[in-house]
Amino acid sequence: MNSIFAYNPLLAILSHIFFIGLSFYALQAIMPEKIIKKNQVFRAQLLFILLSFAIGSAVSNFFLDISYWSGRIPTYFQ
């Protein structure tokens, strides 16, 4: 019984970490030299980290919501 309650938070943590890492990896394809001012390396890195957190969390929440909602569909048709 206790393992059921520990499953969802663990899944959410792993999902967030995975999608934040994936978004950080994807953001590396952007060439910041054309957008960011010169000599602002720390700010550019901080911006990339914050963007990866925002995008990764949003995508993770989307997939967790879809997973939750799809699990609840059979209860509506009974």
Rank of each mutant, 00 (worst) to 15 (best):
G71I: 02
S23G: 04
Q45I: 07
F42Q: 13
I30V: 15
Q45C: 03
W69P: 02
F63M: 04
K34H: 04
G56N: 02
S52D: 05
H16T: 06
S23H: 01
P32H: 00
Q45V: 05
N61F: 14
A6Y: 08
I73Y: 12
M31E: 13
I4A: 11
I55P: 01
K37H: 15
I36S: 13
I49F: 15
I20S: 00
I55G: 09
L11N: 15
A29P: 01
S60H: 03
L10C: 13
F19H: 10
I20Y: 02
I17F: 14
G71L: 07
I20A: 13
Q40R: 14
S67K: 09
A6E: 08
F62G: 08
A26H: 06
I13K: 00
F63W: 07
Y68V: 06
S57I: 13
S67G: 06
Q78H: 08
F42R: 02
Q28K: 12
F24V: 00
A54N: 00
K37C: 03
L14F: 15
K34F: 12
L64K: 02
L11V: 11
N61G: 13
I49N: 13
E33M: 05
A26V: 07
D65C: 07
I49A: 13
G56A: 05
I35G: 07
S60I: 01
L22A: 13
I17C: 11
F24L: 11
S57N: 10
F24M: 01
S52T: 10
L50K: 15
A58M: 07
G21K: 02
L27H: 05
F63Q: 00
L64T: 03
S70P: 00
I17R: 03
F62R: 10
L46I: 06
V59P: 01
L27V: 05
L50S: 07
L50D: 04
A12I: 09
